[in-house]
Amino acid sequence: MMARFRGMAAGIFAGICLTLVSFAAIAAETASEVDVTEYGGAEHSGGMPQLDVSTYSSQVVWLVIFFVLLYQVVSKLALPQLTEVIRQREERISGDLDKAAELRAEAEAAYSRYEADLADAHARAQLRIKELRERIAEEQAARLAELDTSMAEKIAAAEQRIGKARETAMAEVEGAAVETAQAAIERLIGSKVGRDEVERALQAVVKREAA
């Protein structure tokens, strides 16, 4: 590509030189004519200085010289540095953008990791709470059952005690009734009646009443 460019440049330069020579030839010819007749006639007659052909050759010569100089300035001094600094800037910007994208991906990964951890912790906590609740419920049930049985035992014992107490109380009531009946009979008839006789009579009465 460089060689080809050189070739092009050489072609352009050759073209410039060709044109320059032809212009120079024309200018030289006309200049000599003008010299003979009236140099700078255009100025004095109020014509346009642009049409004064005697100046053409020098203008073209210096145009070529300074154009080539400017071409050197542009191609050797300006363009290489400009392309370099702009390339560096683009590289830097794209590099920074890449790094930013990388950091962003990292941050996103960290965030999703954090969220996963959080969800995990939540799940574990829920599990623990559930377990605990179940255990408490079990313990409560067991304790309630225990309480039930012990209460039942106690109730049974108490019932037994009450039954016994009632029996003794009944026996005592019977004894008291017999004694009372004895005392009443003694008062009524003035003689002591045998204890067994009174008992029998009372039991007969109780039986009759019950029937």
Partner: peptide
Amino acid sequence: GLNMSFTNSALFMAVGVGIAAWLFKRGL
């Protein structure tokens, strides 16, 4: 017999090239 005098035209071409050279030299 070619007239190639350094004229005011050439002077300001030189000034133009000089400005460009200065701009790129100082700017870059």
